[in-house]
Design a binder for these strands. Structure first.
Length: 259
DNA sequence: ATGGTAGACCTTCTA
């Protein structure tokens, strides 16, 4: 089973390119982030024509996540527990049905810039809530894949030029510590477990020729429960997608599980 | 030198 994660930076602005990629890569499951639309504006019919079941957790203009699956999606959860006043649409979870059911979440973790501000505090609270929820999921001993834009540069090797990120929320010690805490729960970074080499990035800024200079960072991750990690076969970053017409600033990452 | 671009959408916010 191939499971993809992709921050598309507006599903409607990107629809032709996203559909073309789905036709060629044909993932069984996909987690999308930053769809930037309300549920009713998501182009669900276009994906249904490609054979996907669709679940959306959107909002106007910002954020928004979606799950697509060739088999039905069940037991849907919209939003992370733990902060009733949080009105950002950043978390969507469902059970992918089949002979070996897989629980999948599409995650758009807060950016948090600038460090020290309210947005950074929100990022850290959100990561603590994700940690608590992930702990409860791991206890179920299911095949679980938590995939998305984590907005964290976990290690210096995950940036082309780490020093340029020292003042950024994505590379703050607190952000990196909270990301490590997720791994200490028993979650596995699929890319690293599949022997991913340094220099592989998933995001290049639109500004300052970042793509042309390969000033990238690896911030889109698939974190696996032990039961999922046992079945990991391969991870592929679809880097070439960044060089296409009107691209997202992120590219798809695909993990293959032997199910 | 604190730049640069992209999307949503209405004037500025987010990234």
């Amino acid at each position: 089973m191939r499971i993809a994660t992709w921050n598309v930076n507006s599903i409607n602005a990107r629809l032709d390119g996203v559909l073309a990629w789905f036709e060629e890569a044909a993932p069984d499951v996909a987690c999308l982030q930053e769809i930037k639309c309300l549920d009713e504006k998501f182009p669900a019919e276009a994906f249904a024509r490609l054979g996907y079941n669709v679940v959306v957790h959107g909002q106007k203009s910002y954020n928004g996540v979606a799950l697509l699956s060739k088999t039905p999606l069940e037991d849907v959860r919209r939003g992370l527990p733990g902060e009733a006043s949080d009105d950002h649409s950043r978390y969507l979870e469902a059970m992918v049905s089949g002979p070996s059911p897989v629980r999948v979440a599409s995650i758009y973790l807060p950016n948090g810039n600038p460090p020290g501000g309210e947005k950074f505090a929100y990022k850290l609270r959100w990561m603590a809530r994700l940690n608590a929820h992930a702990r409860s999921l791991i206890a179920l001993e299911e095949i679980v894949v938590l995939a998305g834009d984590y907005n964290v540069i976990a290690e210096p090797r995950d940036a082309d030029n780490p020093s340029s990120w020292l003042g950024d929320a994505l590379f703050q010690p607190e952000s990196r510590e909270a990301f490590r805490a997720l791994k200490w729960l028993g979650l596995t970074d699929a890319f690293l477990a599949a022997d991913g080499a340094p220099g592989a990035y998933t995001f290049w800024d639109y500004q300052a020729g970042a793509w042309q200079r390969d000033h990238g960072i690896r911030i889109d991750h698939l974190l696996l429960s032990p039961q999922a990690a046992d079945r990991l076969a391969a991870v592929t970053i679809h880097r070439d997608v960044r060089g296409r017409d009107r691209p997202s600033d992120h590219v798809p990452v695909v993990a293959e599980l032997a199910l």
